[in-house]
Write a protein that binds this DNA or RNA. Structure first.
Lengths: 205, 205
DNA sequence: TCCTGACTTTTTTAACAAAACTATCAATTT
DNA sequence: AAATTGATAGTTTTGTTAAAAAAGTCAGGA
């Protein structure tokens, strides 16, 4: 049977969808509670019945979005033929995640320094999940005797992630466009793959 | 004998020094032409006699600052015992350059997207000089038979520079402070050295 | 040629009202 | 009781305008 709580969950889900749609297309600051309510033909007050305020609604959407990403990572952990495949997967998956949610993340660029704790937790969790996946891949590779034993795999993975991040930042700041186009994205990707390649060789015997 | 042009140059030099001092301590937007003139006990109008406007005065100072940096690079080119030494030199020199001129560069952060062409030229020149130094170091290392021949050394160097940049960006955004402190700087440096280390190994046979 | 004081123009700042938006709540419907 | 809303209070953003500050010009003097 359908309980009251189930019904609430369904409604919350509808709200999350509508909110996600707005946030994704217009960004956080350019979508109003009225608009989200309007999309669902409900009153704004009802949104506040289900969610305490706008930023916590955003966090809830972020939670959902992040969960999808986390799932795509955990689904593939320990399924890689070698370390390179793991790195490529990380590069492509993260890249797609960021590109498809670009406007949604304007909340981050907006609040730059002081993001809500709840957001930081999600960001941290995502980062840990990425790291965990790659650390696992490194350990496997070590076990297979393909690369040297690594004293601190986490440190190594985070170093590579920072480095990969730099490839994007620099690429974007060099061209002056904020939103990179197709060829540009492909350039970033190939640079990253090259970096990952050299990096892996640097871990070998 | 002292010609009129010499005299102009001397005076321009004085102005550049005073301007540099102000820009360095208070940033571009927080220093006025009146203040620079005041420091030199001259009238503001005289500044405009020597420099067409404020931004071109800034560019001239930038030119001087950059020249100092360029010289420190060219002085050491082809003097490195090995590739690692060259990378370490690049890391440390650039790092010190940025730290000691931090406020001076607020002009960059201010105008973010549309810097004057003259500034872009300088930035490009600096970047090319850094790249050239490291490319040269790579070629030497190849000649010595220490690393594999590299099809496109410039591409490799730029990749490393991007990656090193990422280490700083990420480190800074992770901690929430904009201006990193001593230990923080040391952490960035050690991460970069580690990255350079792995990178070099990745270029070996 | 070098320099200045006085002047004009442009940009930044401050104050404040209007508008837009977030958030609340008593009242109403299901 | 749970779900919903219109009306409204409170807050932030935006627009307006006047004053202040700074950039930039110029006629004229040493």
């Amino acid at each position: 049977m359908i309980t009251a709580n189930d019904h609430q969950d369904v409604k919350k889900e509808k709200i999350l969808e509508a909110a996600h749609h707005r946030f994704l297309h217009f960004g956080y600051s350019k979508t109003t509670m009225n608009e989200i309510a309007g999309d669902l033909s409900m009153s704004k007050a009802l949104l506040y019945y289900y969610f305490p305020d706008k930023s916590q609604l955003y966090v809830a959407v972020m939670r959902k979005v992040a969960d999808g990403y986390l799932k795509s990572l955990t689904d593939r952990i320990n399924t890689f033929a070698d370390l390179k495949e793991a790195f490529i997967f990380q590069i492509d998956t993260q890249h797609e995640f960021i590109v498809t949610n670009y406007n949604f993340f304007d909340f981050f660029r907006l609040n730059e320094q002081n993001l809500p704790d709840a957001i930081w937790e999600i960001v941290t969790q995502v980062h840990e999940s990425e790291t965990h996946m790659l650390v696992s891949a490194i350990k496997t590779e070590v076990d297979r005797g393909k690369i040297k034993p690594v004293a601190n795999p986490t440190e190594i993975v985070e170093l590579l992630l920072d480095a990969l991040h730099g490839v994007r930042v620099k690429s974007v700041s060099h061209k002056k466009t904020m939103f990179p186009n197709k060829e540009h994205l492909e350039e970033i990707r190939s640079k990253r793959l090259l970096l990952a390649d050299i990096f892996i060789k640097g871990l070998m015997y």
